[in-house]
């Protein structure tokens, strides 16, 4: 008898479609779909993929609770021994969905659940503690390594074998600490680390510090009537034709463009450069992402003093955190220098 595995994938990997189909609700299919074929091969005779649950990334993200509940119900109906989700690589909404499905499966069904993501996927920080996440490359080019890694992990869990350290097993740290016996006291180990550090040699800490990127909230805006407000977006809105060629994904730059001559944005003046959501709505009416029409109206009414004369824009779609950080720092410095009092940042 072999173990029963249910596979969760998004609409893209199911071959249903890209962003234009991201709103499809959950669906249960018998057997393997898309990357499930590779998963079935990697699981071998020990486990079989009995069914596949498919859900649009957009649908999942916008209906978190309902989608999770419906998907859980579908999975439960298959009576599985384990669930595998993804791999999601660096796709943020897919990673979030795969992580949420795994977390719900472990919690509600009490069976192993494994997914796979690139370490910078936002789903990692949200679900690393509640899901086993195999470390993958940032794009589907890494499929041939990701699927066997996930299969290996889920088979181990199905056999009720204990997982070794994240480094040894190829999954992402879950923030767990395990006690073990050693002949060397803490004092000796600490001194050894210190000596290595002083000598510029590598050493491995036994207590890594968490990486929190947090800033204290700024004090509130005191005098709105006299304030200059700026608009910034990660939704890719740019002048028609995308003059600076901001990338549709993995952006390496941001743009800054004049707003002085615009009372509103139109389909003929602006568009979105973003490749991670259906651009129809933003292209038809860019104010849906960058609310220039309403801001201009409020400026005229005197709600605030001035809409800053430029807007800053980039594409938040698989954008490396290091790039985003740099964009943010540069944009903030420019806004500060120009005396902007507050910023409305919109994201898609």
């Amino acid at each position: 008898m072999s173990f029963r595995v249910v596979h969760y994938i998004n609409q893209f990997f199911a071959g249903i479609g890209g962003e234009d189909k991201a709103d499809v609700p959950p669906e249960l299919r018998q057997g393997v779909v898309g990357p499930g074929q590779a998963l079935a091969a990697a699981l071998g005779s020990e486990a079989q993929v009995v069914a596949t649950v498919i859900c649009g990334d957009g649908y999942f993200a916008e209906n978190l609770e309902k989608a999770t509940a419906d998907i859980l119900q579908m999975i439960r109906s298959c009576n599985p021994d384990a669930v595998v989700a993804g791999p999601a690589f660096n796709a943020g909404r897919y990673g979030t969905a795969a992580g949420a499905v795994c977390a719900a499966v472990s919690k509600e069904l009490g069976i192993p659940a494994v997914t796979g993501m690139y370490p910078e996927n936002p789903g990692v920080d949200m679900f690393r503690k509640s899901a086993v996440i195999a470390k993958t490359a940032d794009s589907a080019r890494g499929m041939k390594d990701a699927v066997p890694a996930m299969a290996r992990l889920v088979l181990k869990l199905l056999r009720k074998e204990e997982l070794g350290s994240p480094e040894a097993e190829g999954y992402l740290e879950q923030g767990l600490r395990k006690n073990f016996f050693t002949d060397v006291t803490g004092a000796e180990r600490a001194v050894e680390m210190l000596v290595n550090k002083l000598a510029g040699k590598p050493f491995v800490t036994e207590y890594p510090m968490p990486v929190f990127d947090r800033v204290a909230p700024n004090p509130p805006l005191k005098d709105l009537a006299n304030a200059t407000i700026a608009l910034v977006t990660s939704g890719g809105i740019c002048p028609k034709g995308n003059p600076d060629h901001i990338e549709a994904s993995s952006a390496t730059k941001y743009g800054e463009y004049g707003l002085e001559e615009f009372d509103l944005l139109t389909a003929s003046s602006h568009e979105t450069a973003h490749g991670g959501y259906d651009p129809t709505y933003a292209n038809n009416d860019p104010n849906r992402v960058l609310p220039v029409d309403v801001m201009r109206e409020m400026e005229k009414e005197g709600v605030f003093k001035k809409l800053y004369g430029k807007f800053f824009t980039t594409v938040g779609n698989g954008t490396p955190v290091a790039n985003a950080k740099r964009f943010g720092a540069e944009i903030a410095a420019k806004l500060k220098k120009d005396g902007v009092d507050a910023v409305i940042l919109t994201s898609t």
Binding site: E19, A22, G58, A61, E62, R93, G235, Y277, D278, P279, T280, Y281, A282, N284, D285, N287, R288, V289, P291, V294, T346, S347, T348
Partner: peptide, 12 residues
């Protein structure tokens, strides 16, 4: 919290 991913500040 906004309206939807492809149109955060609108509803077609």
């Amino acid at each position: 919290p906004a309206v939807a991913i492809p149109h955060p500040l609108g509803d077609p």
